[in-house]
Amino acid sequence: MKKLKLSLLVASSLLSANLVAGELTVVSFGGAYGAAQKKHMIDPYIKETGTKILFEDYSGGVAELKAQVESKNVKWDVIDIEYIDVERACSEGMLEVFPHDKLPKGDDGKAGKDDFIPAAIGNECAVGNIVWSIIFAHKNDLKTKPKTVADVFDTKKIPGKRAFRKRPQVNLEWALMADGVALKDIYKVLGTEKGVKQAFAKLDTIKKDIVWFDSWSQAPQLLNDGGAVIVQSANGRIYSAIKKDKSDFNIVWDGQVYDLDGWAIPKGSKNKEEAIKFILAATKTKPLAGMQDVAYGPTRKSSESLIAEEVKPQLPSAHLDKGIKASAEFWADNGSQLGEKFTAWLIKK
């Protein structure tokens, strides 16, 4: 009898383990952003088509994607990718080319291709999904409040830990801004060996005060539990912490590095057709406007009319003069080399 039970248990667990496998595996960044995507893109699509979707978190970057593609073991079907990475991912053959001509009309009737802002469909492998920004934030009860990126790098003025995402992107840009390089020259300077040295030297000055995190979800957490006094974050995470969790945080737009995120399909996805259908549906006017839940701007012009007035000042587009756009081309060309340098720098005492 016992044996029978055991084998039944084994058999049932075997079956169920196979049954729950989703037909579409979609990965994104989780947290408040993931919740907004689930609400406005994933759930409506499931409801409409009955497709099973496994919605997973990842922490960005091209590494895992590349590993899957190169080992010919592609587990993901749709990926939310930062445009800072998309150029590289596309040029290295990690993504399928997306049929942009299939993009449906906007709700105002404008043809799909004209409705998107040009940057959103500027890369042949992806469809823009949000306009977001990397900003820094602090608690309002901080004695001296940081106003500029230079303040972030000034531990005398504002003592305490700073939390940055563990990668060279944005950190090197900020280091140069804090060191007085003009916004328009950041990538030009960073393209030279001297500029790279300068950036690392600036980072060196606060190295022991930096807490590194791997995933955007950790940023509001670190601020909340006192792990850091200033955190680098995606603007939406902080916005949602302020709005939903009533956290007493403040966003500083100075030095913002704004960028797009887009949906793309990993090369060799087992469900390519279904993935295309999903992306087409998820980038319609309404779902894109839904991203205002986390203060991310839409990539379709037709979505703009759906944005609530009180959200507008919280969108990155309201503060463009204070920062720069992340250069996908620069990071495509220099990402791996600076990544190596960054890792070595990090490990070195």
Binding site: C90, E92, G93
Partner: peptide
Amino acid sequence: SRLSGKFAEEVNRRLPR
């Protein structure tokens, strides 16, 4: 064929920059 990036990365590994 979208493989130039991969080629570049591999060469970069042997000779940075």
